[in-house]
Amino acid sequence: MKKLSVFLLLILGITASFGQENDKNDFPEFTGDNFSLEGALALFKKANSLEEFEKLINEENNNVNNLDLNNDGETDYIVVQDIQEKDTHVIVLSTFLNEKEKQDIAIIGIEKTGNESAILQIEGDSELYAENTIIEPFEIDEKMEKSKGGPNALEITPTGVVVNVWFWPSVRFLYAPGYVVWVSPHRWGFYPRWWKPWRPYRYSVFYGRCAQHRVYYHRTATHRVVVARKVYSPRRSRSTIVVHNRRGTTVVHKNKRGKTTVVKTKRRGGARR
């Protein structure tokens, strides 16, 4: 019996070590991959206002946010702010890392293109994502075209189309008469009562949980929303804490005398679930 107990403990020890080794390799290529841009667009389409949108992206069961940029072991609260210039809106998604530091995560640029038409894209901040990480709604238009196989033969050709988002409730909310530009009332230490942060999931788990969002939104290399980027650029918030975007972050600590200490954090995805 004693030998059996020792054997079982040995097997459990090997299994635990193997699991920990796998966890070390379980991290995203970029820190921002722990926030689903596709998921953010899915919830933006669903929301009736920016206040509701902010609530949705901060709910655990919606599988959009898995960020812990300040490495306190809990997910960060995402705040939403609108920047408006004529018929252009820039929805900025940010988080406070402490009382003074704020880091932008992504922007949703929306431009009106007609009386009842508008386009949008979401772009991840370059501190957290690969350069030019742009996501947009995705739809397929099927056209009947003559086939090369014969004079009377026809074939269906699928073509991607730019989606008109004018009839999304959130977009109609922004362009409604009397709309007042929304700025989240929340900040570091002042969060809504309903919000309960959770321990971030391992990246492989989170990636699977937000897979549903990637069906209707895809990556593109084309900047269609040009004015919004120009409007946003001079107002971008970049934290001095987050200074690397590949395979983890680097935290910069400053003491009262102004001395700076640079500490590399463990790789993203180190949380256990």
Rank of each mutant, 00 (worst) to 15 (best):
S94D: 04
A118K: 04
K266E: 12
Q212V: 09
H223W: 11
K259Y: 14
E111F: 05
V243W: 11
L174M: 05
V242G: 01
P169N: 12
T220I: 03
C210P: 01
K196H: 13
L69M: 02
L56K: 01
Q212E: 09
D141A: 07
G73V: 08
Q20P: 03
N58Y: 03
K55M: 09
V92R: 12
W195Y: 15
I105Y: 01
D87E: 10
Y129F: 15
R238E: 06
Q103V: 03
K266G: 13
V262D: 03
L174E: 08
K266T: 13
D68S: 00
E38P: 04
I122N: 02
K146R: 14
R219W: 10
F173W: 15
E142A: 03
V80P: 04
T15H: 09
T133D: 10
A211T: 08
A40Y: 01
Q20E: 10
R193F: 06
R235H: 12
H218G: 07
S239E: 09
N132A: 10
I83Q: 10
P234I: 02
A118H: 08
G150I: 05
E74Q: 14
A153N: 10
I105C: 00
G39D: 03
P177N: 13
V90I: 03
Y207T: 01
H213I: 03
T261L: 12
V180G: 09
S147F: 10
M1R: 14
G73R: 10
S36Q: 01
G208A: 03
S237Q: 13
F138E: 05
N164M: 01
I91R: 03
F30P: 04
A118Y: 11
V263K: 15
K24E: 08
E29N: 14
A16N: 07
K2I: 10
G39P: 07
H253L: 13
N164S: 04
T95F: 00
G149Y: 14
S126L: 10
R229F: 02
K146P: 05
Q81I: 08
A176S: 15
T260N: 12
